[in-house]
Computed example of a mutant assay.
Amino acid sequence: MITSTSNPKVKRLVNLKKRRKARDDEGVFLAEGIRMFREVPTDLLLEVYVTEGFYKKEKELTDILCRQAKIRQEVLSDTVFAYVSDTKTPQGVMCVVRQRNKTAKKWERLIEKEQQKPFFLVLDNLQDPGNMGTVIRTAEAAGVTGILMSADCVDVYNPKTIRSTMGSVYRMPLWYAEDICEAVRELKRQGIHTYAAHLEGTVVYDEAEYREGTAFLIGNEGNGLRQEVAELADTWVRIPMAGQVESLNAAIAAAVLMFEAGRQRR
């Protein structure tokens, strides 16, 4: 059992928790909590850290997953686990998980697989980790094919983002595009109709047609879509507001649009 916060393994975990560069340099991220542990693909599972109490309670699950991944779990004292945890009430289990390829180099292949009616989300400069995680989780629930993100979006492997995905990060295809405008142009070249969520939209969101190839463009929480991105969209759509509300939270707006598309496609 590791009982000191000065242990090199503990220092590395803290570094991975706090620093995006450390995560990217190793090509890993931290997934904390029982649900994230249960759902982690064993081919991506690299390390498991548990408290003694968690291991006694979940010994069968822990042993099965570690055996399938061909790794051994490391036991941390409660004090040390609380030190490396990113939550106020740690659940006693943390995994080091391999990142999937996050570049946009191969995302075109997914368009080919979904030739009939691909369904994409394009995120421009989204900055809040909780929003990002919520969008990823909602996208899976709404049947989205994949999510394209501008290079300046928040890190999808931020611990808060990972928690907010509730496991969807393991399953939803994600890519960072070095040039988000070129990525949108490529979607259009593939026959995918692009819809910008915009306050100046001339079409109400539930009056548009989303049954064929569709991509929703969602902008920054405070400033919306950058003009150069918005101008590439085939259609600007808006969500009507009652009262004095001007706009919705980015994740909520994305959810409204995605589930309308999902409704039309059922």
Rank of each mutant, 00 (worst) to 15 (best):
T3N: 13
S4R: 11
T5W: 00
N7K: 09
K18L: 12
R19Y: 15
K21L: 11
L30D: 02
L45Q: 02
Y49N: 03
G53P: 02
Y55W: 14
K57F: 03
I64L: 14
C66V: 02
A69P: 02
R72Q: 14
Q73P: 06
V75T: 12
V75Q: 10
S77D: 10
T79Y: 15
Y83V: 03
V84P: 01
T87Y: 10
C95D: 02
R100Q: 15
N101M: 09
K102C: 14
A104D: 08
I111S: 06
E112W: 12
K117T: 13
F119V: 07
F120V: 09
V122F: 04
N125C: 08
Q127C: 09
D128R: 06
D128N: 13
P129N: 05
G130R: 09
M132Y: 04
V135K: 03
A139Q: 06
E140L: 14
E140D: 13
A141K: 11
G143R: 11
D152I: 00
C153E: 07
C153V: 04
D155L: 05
T161M: 05
R163K: 13
S164Y: 06
T165A: 12
W175H: 08
Y176F: 08
E186M: 15
L187E: 03
E200C: 09
E200N: 14
G201T: 12
T202I: 11
T202Y: 15
V204I: 12
V204W: 12
A208E: 12
E212Q: 15
T214D: 00
T214A: 09
L217H: 01
I218Y: 03
N220K: 01
N220R: 00
N220P: 01
E221V: 01
Q227D: 06
A242V: 14
A242E: 15
E246I: 07
A255L: 05
M258W: 05
F259Y: 15
A261C: 13
A261G: 09
R265Y: 11
R266H: 15
